[in-house]
Amino acid sequence: MRQNDQAVARLALQLMDLTSLNQDDSTRSISNLCVSAATAFGPPAALCVFPEYVIWAKQESLRLGLPQLKIATVTNFPGGYPDIERAVAETERAVAAGADEVDVVFPYRAFMQGDSDLGQELISACKQACGEGALLKVILETGVLQERKLIRQASELAITAGADFIKTSTGKVATNATPEAAQVMLEAIRESGTNCGFKAAGGVRNVADAATYLHLAEDILGADFLTPARFRFGASGLLSNLVATLSGQDATTAGNSY
């Protein structure tokens, strides 16, 4: 096992939003998710669950002695619907339930049809709904936007509207995180001069995948960017690959991403 693999795995674990966004989720599966977060190498940055499981996940993480574990959720998910009132109401309910972070889906289809005002208004309104206590991560759905120009424009719009993070994907479409999209987004963050963070979600399955995004972010924004306050991975099965790597086990078949 290369020492560098273990260093990447340790860092990636600290930066991960351990995620379960499945239609068959239950209190039992979310409890199991919380248990899996209590690794021998420390917890991930956050758990990301559907809004109806925020309270349960928070209670379970406290029961397991993980008070530092953030609880994230999703709103306007997964379709990025063009309904500002709906997105705001979902965000308000999530924050009231105790969500520390909200990943809201950008109305990407309306944006692709030329309506950029809707996206800006929705993000600004959801940012206000988050108040002072919750982070707002904006999911751009870059696999649908596809074109570098559109990804860049959506990134700039989200940052200007107040996003605390910009995120690649819901994990629910054919193409999710890619290094190409990540590069565009990271360059937009750099050129904005803001403290906006970045989250790669979907398709990050193993240490090698994680290393690709970590090196890319470091090249564009520097090593100081690689903290939970600025960089995240959204994944589910990635955890097993990271733990196997850190344990010195064969990690070649471990890890899938939502």
Rank of each mutant, 00 (worst) to 15 (best):
A7R: 03
A7F: 01
A9R: 00
R10C: 01
L11S: 01
L11N: 00
Q14P: 00
M16A: 15
D17N: 10
S20P: 00
S20W: 07
Q23C: 01
D24F: 12
D24A: 02
D25C: 08
S26C: 08
R28H: 02
S29Y: 04
S29M: 08
S29V: 07
I30F: 03
I30H: 01
N32E: 14
N32A: 10
L33M: 09
C34G: 00
C34L: 07
V35F: 01
A38H: 13
A40Y: 06
A40F: 05
F41H: 14
F41Y: 15
G42H: 08
P43I: 04
P44W: 04
A45N: 08
L47D: 06
L47Q: 03
V49R: 09
P51R: 03
Y53N: 11
V54A: 10
V54T: 14
I55K: 12
K58G: 15
K58N: 09
Q59S: 11
E60G: 01
E60W: 04
S61C: 13
L64M: 10
G65I: 09
P67N: 02
I71G: 00
A72L: 02
T73F: 07
T73R: 04
F77G: 15
F77V: 05
P78M: 03
G79Q: 11
G80N: 04
G80C: 06
P82A: 06
D83V: 03
E85K: 10
E85L: 09
E85H: 05
E85F: 03
A87I: 12
A87G: 14
V88E: 15
V88N: 07
A89L: 11
T91A: 09
T91C: 15
R93G: 03
R93K: 11
R93C: 05
A94R: 14
A94N: 09
A94G: 11
V95N: 05
V95I: 13
A97T: 09
A97Q: 13
A97L: 10
A97H: 12
G98A: 10
G98Q: 10
A99C: 13
V102I: 15
D103V: 11
V105S: 11
V105P: 12
F106K: 10
F106D: 10
P107V: 04
Y108R: 14
A110Y: 09
M112R: 13
Q113R: 12
D115K: 08
G119S: 14
E121C: 03
I123N: 00
S124T: 13
A125F: 04
K127T: 14
Q128E: 12
A129T: 14
A129L: 06
A129K: 08
G131R: 13
G133I: 15
L135I: 07
I139E: 12
E141R: 12
E141T: 11
G143F: 10
L145Q: 09
L145V: 10
E147H: 08
R148T: 11
K149W: 03
R152C: 14
A154F: 09
